[in-house]
């Protein structure tokens, strides 16, 4: 049923954690080498997202602890420090500031969360 993944494909997808580790409609932080990635389980929309854990506004490693929600139809996360909000899809700042966060492809297979780290 599945096309066989090539070796590079396998290397690009990092097994982050079990899907049950990330709270429903919330997020948690995953360590990948010396990088920190925020993973969000937007269960209400049945969507998963992965972004930088660093809020670019004050350089704080906290986005995974932020609240998620939507603006119009755009899924977003709000930084706990100053409530700057970022699109979970594009990483664009939705509260009018001049900064963005990087987003990463994420997939769920057999109950595990995989993050595409090709760009890291």
């Amino acid at each position: 049923m599945y096309a066989k993944e090539t070796e590079t494909d396998v290397q690009q997808w990092f097994l982050a954690c079990s899907a049950g580790d990330i709270p429903q409609d919330g997020g948690a932080c995953v360590k990948y080498n010396d990088k920190q990635i925020a993973v969000f389980n937007f269960s209400r929309r049945n969507e998963w997202f992965a972004t930088d854990n660093l809020c670019p506004h004050r350089q704080q490693m906290v986005l995974s602890r932020g609240m998620i929600g939507t603006q119009g139809d755009e899924p977003k996360v709000a930084c706990p420090f100053h409530k700057k909000t970022f699109s979970l899809k594009t990483g664009e700042c939705l509260s009018g500031d001049d900064c963005t966060i990087t987003t990463y492809p994420v997939k769920i297979e057999d109950g595990f969360v995989y993050i595409n780290v090709a760009s890291l």
Binding site: F42, R44, R45, G66, M67, G69, T70, Q71, G72, D73, P75, K76, A78, K83, T85
Partner: peptide, 19 residues
Amino acid sequence: YDQVLDKHGKGDGCEICKP
């Protein structure tokens, strides 16, 4: 929260209405 949102709200909530 989800019950309230389903019954009286729209969309998927945000950092204002959740708290």
